[in-house]
Amino acid sequence: MARDQDRPALPPALPVVDQPPAERADAARNRHKILAAAEEIVATDGVEHLTMNDLAAAAGVGVGTVYRRFGDLAGVIDAMMNERENQLQQAFMAGPPPLGPGAPPADRVRAFLHSYVDLLDTYGDLLAAAETTTPSLRYRGAYAVHHIHLVTLISEANPGLDAQYLADTLLAAVAASHFVHQRRHRKMSVRRIKTGLDTLLDCLLQASR
Rank of each mutant, 00 (worst) to 15 (best):
M1T: 05
M1D: 01
A2S: 10
D6M: 08
L10Q: 06
L10W: 03
P12S: 10
L14M: 10
L14C: 08
P15E: 06
Q19C: 02
P21H: 03
A22H: 08
A22C: 03
D26N: 03
A27L: 12
N30D: 15
R31G: 06
H32W: 04
K33R: 15
K33L: 14
I34E: 03
A36S: 14
A37D: 07
E39W: 10
I41E: 09
T44S: 14
G46I: 07
H49N: 13
T51N: 15
T51E: 11
M52E: 11
A57T: 08
A59C: 05
V61H: 08
V63F: 09
T65C: 06
Y67N: 07
L73G: 11
A74S: 15
G75K: 15
V76I: 13
M80W: 02
R84N: 07
N86C: 08
L88M: 11
Q90A: 14
Q90H: 11
A91L: 04
A91T: 02
M93C: 10
A94F: 04
G95Q: 05
G95F: 05
P96T: 05
P96V: 03
P97N: 09
P97D: 09
L99W: 01
A103I: 00
P105H: 12
A106E: 08
D107P: 01
R108L: 09
V109G: 02
A111T: 08
F112H: 14
L113S: 07
L113W: 01
H114C: 00
S115H: 02
S115D: 00
S115A: 15
V117N: 06
D118L: 11
G124N: 01
L127F: 05
A128C: 14
A128D: 13
T133Y: 03
S136L: 09
S136A: 13
L137V: 12
L137K: 11
L137Q: 13
R138E: 13
H147C: 07
L153I: 04
L153V: 04
E156L: 15
N158A: 04
P159N: 11
L161I: 02
D162M: 00
Y165F: 09
A167L: 10
T169F: 10
L171D: 02
L171Y: 03
A175V: 02
A176W: 10
F179V: 07
V180M: 15
H181A: 06
R183K: 13
R184A: 10
H185W: 00
H185F: 00
R186L: 05
K187L: 12
K187W: 04
V190F: 00
R191G: 12
K194E: 08
L197A: 05
L200M: 11
L201P: 08
D202H: 06
C203G: 12
L205M: 01
A207I: 01
